[in-house]
Amino acid sequence: MSSIGTGYDLSNAIFSPDGRNFQVEYASKAVENAGTSIGIKCRDGVVLAVEKIQTSKLLVAGRNKRIQSIDRHIGVAYSGIIPDGRHFVNRGRDEAQSFKSLYKDPIKVPNLIDRVGLYVQNYTCANSVRPFGINAIVGGVDDDGAHLYMIEPSGVYWGYCGTAIGKGRQTAKAELEKLDLPNISVKDGVKEAARIIYLAHEDNKDKEFELEISWVSQSETGGRHEFIPQELFDAAVQYAQEEDDDEEEEDEDVEVQ
């Protein structure tokens, strides 16, 4: 970033001479060191998972959720500045509610992402505001099946089979690429999500974390976005820890050799 300190990074409303908006790029920095979030698109639905870094032992376990619902059928996981994520979700809820008020049907996921994308983009255009400090992974099901998107501070969004953001994103993406997406079941998706978050946590080892997993699928939840049941969660965590141990053993073997 040769242009840093030249003044072109002070405002959204000014391009640098080489055509970049530095405020947007800095916003992405806010995301890169945050806890990892992943989204997996499966055959029959979507799985969302986050590595929620516990900044204090005094925080109540199982509360302060980082995965939220936008409508019955749409969930969001985000990494970055949490209040920005809360605001993003509120806007999504307003859009979903207004769509349903007007057309009775629940909003389709691509339409929802279109609307919130426009909203996020607006925060890159004016001098008086700053962009969203989050990457949000939005997943849901509608009549056209499962959808998974990730939206960035610039307002751009792409559809994915699997995506990750936050500190462990590289590790997570590498693992996601090994999966046969979107042809696995959501039940398998849940196990893999747990495993990948545990693996991605290696990049943030010194901090405590809590795992959150939600899913939305026609077959498992009747099209509703919900946190996975406790039994399934426990099984997924067990699977993740076993895999994690195996990997460590392999590493040790390598060292011995």
């Binding site: 939220q68 619902s69 019955r72 509610q97 349903k100 976005h225």
Partner: peptide, 15 residues
């Protein structure tokens, strides 16, 4: 019916 449905959606936000 619509008002009550909105109420239910809002109630479900906490999942």
């Amino acid at each position: 019916e619509r008002i009550l449905d909105d109420l239910q959606v809002q109630d479900s936000y906490d999942m």
